[in-house]
Simulated scan of single mutants.
Amino acid sequence: MDICDYLARRGGAARSLELQRAGFTRTRVGQAVALGVVVRTRRGVYALPGDGRVAGALAAGGRLTCLSAAPIYRLWTLNVPTGLHLSRSHPTHTSGVVDHGRPKHPRHPWLPVLGLADVLVHAVHCLPELEALVMVQSAVGAGDISRDFLYARCQGRRNGRARAVLDLVIPRADSVLEVLANVHFARAGLRVRRHVYIAGVGEVDFLVEECLVVETDGSTHFEPKSIKRDQRRNNRSIVGGYLVLRYYYEDVIHRPEAMVAEVQAVLRVWRRPTNSRLGDLFA
């Protein structure tokens, strides 16, 4: 096996002892370093160039958890991880490292990463509310863990904040945008149904107050075929008697207050008497 392939399967890094056990001699490792396809991050730790999470965990003597473990489990995140979130047997002050508690559940079988349960429990205690929510939602939605299981690990008065995050998890969400838009609409007091099927249109992301269709569109909706399909869906929704608004990543992530304000403004117009609405439309 090629040393790069081996390291890739190990999350991008391994200790020299692991490499030797896998059959890579010191000479072979040295040649890979000389060619630049492998880097020596510190004494006894070798890694592929680029992402250094696993190498950082090995160098710091810990296991990845919380936000730093999200890419390993392919969890949704809002921000690119900065620094390292680790679980270490003997934590010491290390610049750029956030130390978490020791594991209480089975660890990852071969990578220096905590198990998914510990990763998520650490996240709901450590991260800002919405950042923790999207991680938990993606794991629950994929069927990798249940919300009830996490609830059971977050009992007691000190875990109220963690349970508040779990309360925001919904049965199904197809994207980060759906998760966050649902939170913002609910907190604005809007009556919302998700994944509603409308005859002639198909399934829509949200039906707000039974009259307004709201769609949250990711990057795939910018493809020419998708744009035409979405515009035709808009037309069919309006012909069917619904209003339609569409929001994108920037709206949901960076301008949620403006998004909610627009939804509320449209609903206010819709609730006016018919003649008044027509006057607004043709003024």
Results as ranks from 00 to 15, higher is better:
224 P>T: 11
224 P>W: 06
224 P>D: 13
224 P>I: 07
225 K>D: 15
225 K>G: 14
226 S>I: 03
226 S>Q: 12
226 S>E: 14
226 S>G: 10
226 S>M: 10
226 S>F: 02
226 S>V: 01
227 I>D: 00
228 K>C: 03
228 K>R: 14
228 K>L: 12
230 D>W: 08
230 D>A: 06
230 D>P: 05
230 D>N: 11
230 D>F: 05
231 Q>G: 09
232 R>G: 07
232 R>Y: 09
232 R>E: 15
233 R>I: 03
234 N>E: 11
236 R>A: 14
236 R>K: 11
236 R>C: 01
237 S>R: 00
237 S>D: 01
237 S>M: 10
238 I>T: 12
239 V>A: 13
239 V>G: 00
240 G>S: 11
240 G>H: 07
240 G>I: 03
240 G>F: 04
241 G>Q: 07
242 Y>D: 07
242 Y>V: 05
242 Y>R: 13
242 Y>C: 05
243 L>F: 15
243 L>E: 06
243 L>K: 03
244 V>A: 08
244 V>T: 13
245 L>A: 11
246 R>Q: 11
246 R>I: 06
246 R>M: 03
246 R>L: 08
247 Y>L: 04
247 Y>D: 02
247 Y>K: 04
248 Y>W: 10
248 Y>A: 10
248 Y>R: 12
250 E>G: 09
250 E>R: 13
251 D>Y: 06
252 V>E: 00
253 I>W: 02
254 H>S: 14
255 R>D: 07
